[in-house]
């Protein structure tokens, strides 16, 4: 995380630490990350903050061998599309698991981990990842 992105990262703490998204009180749909307007209800929509559930299941996954800058030391690692129990989907890293347990449909729960750190003098970005629950 470079210093110039610090305000951006800081604004995302509630989202990254606690899966804070929002919900439209008109149609009942939940969104993560938060939306500015409800794409379903448009001007009739009314969005309020909503903390997403911390459990879900894997919809799809990939194993990353060629990582972007900052993640080189972690290869190989899993990235997955996760469907939370309220139906909201998000992309996250899967950690702590033996390869054969990472499967479509596997149940997962959120864990709090380091996302990135540029170098030893830079601030650390923390946030959500997921692990398989048995």
């Amino acid at each position: 995380m470079s210093n110039y992105a610090l305000p951006l990262i800081w604004r995302k703490f509630p989202e990254r630490y606690n899966l804070l998204g929002n919900k439209c009180t008109n149609c009942g749909r939940s969104y993560f990350p938060s939306r500015k307007i409800c794409p379903n209800c448009r001007r009739k929509g009314h969005l309020i903050e909503e903390v997403m559930p911390k459990e879900g299941k894997i919809i799809s996954f990939t194993k990353v061998f060629s990582a972007p800058e900052g993640f080189e030391e972690e290869v190989p690692y899993f990235l997955a599309i996760i469907e939370l129990i309220n139906g909201v989907r998000l992309l996250a890293q899967i950690v702590d698991n033996e390869d054969h347990k990472v499967l479509i449909g596997a149940k997962v729960k959120m864990v709090f981990r380091k996302i990135s750190e540029k170098d030893e003098e830079s601030p650390i970005a923390y946030g959500y990842k997921f692990k398989i629950v048995e």
């Binding site: 030391e73 972690e74 702590d96 864990v111 709090f112 981990r113 380091k114 650390i124 923390y126 990842k129």
Partner: peptide
């Protein structure tokens, strides 16, 4: 601890 764990992430998981 894993690559992405430190005293802070361990503290958070215990606290939760």
């Amino acid at each position: 601890a894993d690559f992405d764990e430190d005293a802070c992430t361990i503290a958070v998981e215990a606290a939760k």
